[in-house]
Measured scan of single mutants.
Amino acid sequence: MEQGTVKWFNAEKGSGFIERENGDDVFVHFSAIQGDGFKSLDEGQAVTFDVEEGQRGPQAANVQKA
């Protein structure tokens, strides 16, 4: 798993970007967020995640709040 920080997340659209510790920013969709309840992330929040190849390039998967 990688570690990173939420660069921004739009709760209305359900997507945003995570700033990786090593590498380019990666797209995140709300469906990749693990946990119960409303799936959203806050700017500056620390997260851990896997990276998968999506239709438009790398994207975060199995996102967990650190």
Rank of each mutant, 00 (worst) to 15 (best):
G35F: 09
Q64A: 10
V6D: 00
S15G: 07
Q59D: 01
V47Y: 01
F30H: 05
F38Q: 06
V6W: 00
D50M: 14
S31R: 10
F27P: 03
G35Q: 09
G4A: 02
A60H: 01
D42K: 15
D24R: 14
G57R: 06
V28A: 01
V26W: 03
Q55A: 13
S31A: 07
E21L: 12
K7D: 00
T5S: 08
D36W: 11
R56K: 11
G23P: 02
F17T: 03
G44D: 04
F38I: 08
V63E: 01
N22W: 10
P58D: 06
W8I: 05
L41R: 02
Q34I: 14
A46Y: 13
G23I: 03
S40F: 12
V47M: 03
F30K: 04
T5K: 13
N10E: 03
G54W: 05
P58N: 07
V6Q: 02
S40P: 04
D25G: 07
S40M: 09
K7F: 04
F17D: 01
F30S: 04
Q45F: 05
Q34N: 10
F9H: 01
D42S: 15
M1S: 14
G37V: 06
F30A: 05
V51D: 02
G44T: 03
G23W: 04
I33P: 03
G54I: 05
Q45Y: 05
A46R: 14
F17G: 00
F30N: 00
E43Q: 15
G54A: 07
D24W: 09
D42Y: 15
K65C: 09
I33C: 06
V63C: 04
F17C: 10
I18N: 01
A66R: 12
D25K: 09
R20H: 04
E43L: 12
G16S: 00
E21P: 12
N10T: 05
Q55F: 13
N22P: 06
G35H: 08
V26T: 02
E21A: 13
F17S: 03
H29W: 06
Q45M: 11
V51Q: 04
V26P: 01
M1R: 15
Q55P: 15
F27M: 01
E12K: 15
V26I: 13
H29I: 05
G44V: 01
D25E: 09
S40E: 06
G54L: 07
N62Y: 06
V63H: 03
S15K: 10
Q3C: 15
T48A: 06
P58A: 08
S40Y: 12
L41Y: 01
E21K: 13
A46C: 14
R20M: 08
F30I: 06
Q3D: 06
V63P: 01
S15P: 02
F38D: 08
M1K: 15
M1Y: 10
V6H: 03
D24K: 13
E2I: 13
S31M: 06
Q45S: 08
A61L: 10
K39N: 05
S31G: 06
N62K: 07
S40G: 07
D50I: 14
F9C: 05
A60V: 02
F9Q: 01
W8V: 05
G37D: 06
H29Y: 06
E43S: 14
D36G: 11
K39W: 07
G14N: 04
M1E: 09
D36A: 13
E53N: 12
F27V: 02
Q45T: 09
E52W: 12
E53I: 14
S15F: 15
M1H: 12
I18A: 01
Q59Y: 15
Q3W: 15
E2M: 13
E21Q: 12
E53P: 11
G57E: 01
V47P: 00
E12C: 15
D24M: 12
V6N: 02
G37K: 05
V6G: 04
D50T: 15
H29E: 04
Q59K: 09
V26F: 05
V47E: 02
F27D: 00
Q34F: 10
F17P: 00
V28I: 08
W8E: 02
R56S: 10
S15T: 14
G54C: 10
